[in-house]
Design a protein around this nucleic acid. Structure first.
Lengths: 248, 248
DNA sequence: CGCAGAATTGATACATCTCAAGCTGGGTGG
DNA sequence: CCACCCAGCTTGAGATGTATCAATTCTGCG
């Protein structure tokens, strides 16, 4: 079941779907050739754990297709998602031997993995990978800080609206459509995963989704398929600055 | 009042107090000389705003002495602190023209500023500044993610204990003492700033501090001077893994 | 001395959690 | 083909933690 995904992914960096956004985005042809030599693909089925926090990790990777999550868990089981990894996002930290978070595939997932040691060597000898990684890390830091505002200060309804807006925007971005007027997308997360991301319980997520539906902010077909008739209306519900001209 | 601070700070990178931890940590002598040419010091009094979010920012900087905060504010005034900047921490983002957050001095503050354009040139022509900045940014990202767990899942009491533990640890680190046994430090934040950091109200902060005091986890002399008789006891109150061998 | 900002404490309101009961839709096996 | 099952989801009722509103009380300082 997972194998056919693998087969649809090109093994040539030249026509890789994430070539222009991933950590390799700025590489010259000679750098790409070095990357080709140390890379390999791995696929995971939806629900599978990619890595457990604390495990030894001898590769770093880019998400090629599918979605993965980064989560932290407390001793008593409380969970907080700290990252949502979409195609082109980077996994792992050069120079660190073990994983700091649980990484889980929420959809079928294909990753382009690089053996860590050679990747680190490449980083220290050529500038472009490190430059791009710095850029991506700074973007992630901004995203994390925006999420801190959400977790610390937003109401449950604002949290849900914010998550829907982010998914809608990213989805529109992947499909190269503008995020205006009516938007349609599928939720890549269960209610429980949404709760883990938003710092809520799954019951509260369910209630607030129902409320947004009742108020006409969204429409649902089944549990996962979302229709946003008026994107600006959704943005109003997030509590954010309306001009919210995302830095992306 | 602020000026004498400036005078106590060496203008020679060679004996700068943050030389070994800041963005310049890995620089060779020739790189340091280039940095010397584009740097200048600025000082701020406690309470002063360094930059407003959205303002044009034509420098980046390192905190030399004192403490600054990064905060985000919603239209209706809800505030969330998203960063606490201690000596050696970096402010600003190369390649971005405007500030993304409000930066405020919570104590008297001295910053070592670099004109942005020359700094960016330096980054693209020599590797050591960019390498160090990547490392620092990855550390900040980890800290932000740890804070996401705190904001999303911890109780008010756990939040306070966590903040105290972090300040105690950083303080011990600056003083080169081990964070074991009895610890003494001064809170660099008001109750309101603590609240903004923890996603609470100042009243809840006050109540939980009183509760920790009542339960003997901490002792207070005045409002700001904190004594932690048993650091392990404090750690238990944070809800974190007790082995919490910080990656620092 | 007395003022102003900071902090504490109290009483009450309310948002979200918790516990619990049902619902829904897709898959499985008889 | 139907009955059943089960994970995912919804909804309800009540408990609880934190926010809100409102007085005081500290503390440092002119």
């Amino acid at each position: 079941m997972a194998h056919h995904d693998l087969q649809t992914v090109s093994h040539e960096c030249g026509d890789c779907p994430i070539r222009h956004r991933a950590v390799c985005a700025r590489c010259e042809t000679d750098e790409l050739q070095r990357l080709e030599q140390i890379k390999y693909y791995r696929s995971y089925q939806a629900g599978q754990t990619v890595i457990w926090s604390g495990d030894r990790m001898d590769f770093v990777a880019s998400v090629v297709t599918g979605i993965a999550t980064l989560t932290q868990t407390m001793e008593d089981g409380r969970r907080q998602m700290v990252g949502l990894l979409l195609p082109s996002d980077f996994v792992g930290r050069p120079g660190r031997p073990t994983a700091a978070y649980d990484v889980t595939a929420t959809t079928d997932l294909v990753m382009c993995c690089f053996r860590k040691k050679p990747f680190e060597d490449l980083m220290s000898t050529t500038p472009h990978v490190a430059q791009r990684l710095l850029e991506m890390t700074l973007d992630e830091l901004d995203a994390a800080r925006e999420w801190m505002l959400l977790l610390g200060r937003k109401t449950a309804r604002e949290k849900i609206a914010s998550l829907l807006a982010i998914i809608a925007r990213r989805d529109a971005h992947l499909k190269l459509k503008s995020a205006k007027g009516a938007i349609v997308f599928d939720l890549p997360l269960t209610r429980e995963e949404m709760a883990d991301y938003l710092g809520l319980t799954l019951e509260t997520v369910s209630r607030q989704v129902s409320a947004l539906k009742r108020d006409g902010v969204i429409e649902l077909e089944g549990k996962r398929h979302v229709i946003v008739p008026d994107f600006d209306r959704l943005i109003e519900e997030t509590g954010d600055d309306s001009d919210g001209g995302y830095l992306v």
